[in-house]
Design a protein around this nucleic acid. Sequence first.
DNA 1: CTAATTTCTTGATATTTATCAAGAGCCAAT
DNA 2: ATTGGCTCTTGATAAATATCAAGAAATTAG
Lengths: 223, 223
Amino acid sequence: MLLLHHLQIKNENNNKKQPKPLPHSHLNHYYCTMSELITYIQSYFGVVQEKDVELIASLFKKTSIKKGEYFLKSGKNSNQLSFIQEGLLRIFVATEDKEITQWISTKGYFVTDLSSFVFQTPSRWNIQALSDTELYTINRDDYTKIGQLIPAWHELEKLFIVRCFIILEDRIFSHLSMTAEERYQFFFAHNKELFNQVPLQYIASMLGMTPETFSRIRKKQLS
Amino acid sequence: MLLLHHLQIKNENNNKKQPKPLPHSHLNHYYCTMSELITYIQSYFGVVQEKDVELIASLFKKTSIKKGEYFLKSGKNSNQLSFIQEGLLRIFVATEDKEITQWISTKGYFVTDLSSFVFQTPSRWNIQALSDTELYTINRDDYTKIGQLIPAWHELEKLFIVRCFIILEDRIFSHLSMTAEERYQFFFAHNKELFNQVPLQYIASMLGMTPETFSRIRKKQLS
DNA sequence: CTAATTTCTTGATATTTATCAAGAGCCAAT
DNA sequence: ATTGGCTCTTGATAAATATCAAGAAATTAG
């Protein structure tokens, strides 16, 4: 029941066909959303088996963390994958002298350290709540069960991760081909809402510039 | 037979166990090597089934392309995945005024536009041979067969792609946290050989700097 | 081997971005 | 409402990197 609201099941697309990728959205996704996932599941299985969706949904438990608390600390193993129902999480690395924000995950996205979750290695990132956050969380053992119970799951999962891979390729490309100002503009065009919700210094870091540079570019854009 | 030389099958590790990730090698891989793949297959299946390896190997056909020829042109769909037996391929984007090199794939690596290969969308990259290159190539239909014939293949494939994902995460992080000089040093430390093999301007582009900046940093390092 | 072409280096200069420092604005807790 | 602590802005300056132009070195083609 938990997730059915988000799952948006529609019994269309009766034939099993190759999933289409979403429009190629440079830079504006990272971890992927539940509705994206479901679009995949639908197009992949044809009709989503109601019982399978129920099964998957039942394995996610509602959890929450308060602003400032950590979802994951670097060095720890990640044993959970969460869907953000409401709230914001910042993924960052603390170096000697400063923090580098790798990404900010918002409502509707999945979050985990994929590396740590999959391979059970120490997490490279800290993940901290920027606001009180509600999650639907599945632990690693339960997640493994999905693969055992739904034969085509791994194939689907692969497609999902490839999409994330592509998004990262694009993000690298943005650093090879765009100036700080261009990265700002692009990101702003696709993520306006975020600018009112989180400290701008984190967005600056995520885009690879200092808060001062960010502030100056921002001023220029507003005028 | 084709690939058995590379596959380096060893009938050790008799129990099926969780594959360990390779040491976390920031920035120095992108597409992954056959031996890495096989390490995975081995640890994943426990003992590699000789017949399965034969099967996989038999689907790869030896092909070659001459220096300057294209393995893939942007806009075309990628229908092949290749293992580089010998040679060098440059993955790049041609913009109005310049070319941006996204990566250089060397002997021992797989190469394709993953996005295009998996989703059959137009390739975003050009892939061109920097030298006469020998490949073992599998087409998309045959690749699909592997998944049909070896049930655990998709799970394994997922792990492989997650590894590639992690490498990209690190590469992004290098742009958020390192200067051009630091990126040069890091890359040089891990890829010395490449500096004698390809035009340095391509490495410069790949690291996100101009050839002039690259040249000056290089001079500084040598002295 | 030689000429043509491409690649690399170097210098001068411009632009972009970072750093440091100070103050202003904004929130949140008392 | 007031205080304290963040966060953001702004200015002055420094450092990093890009651009443009020319020539040197290396490579390739004939």
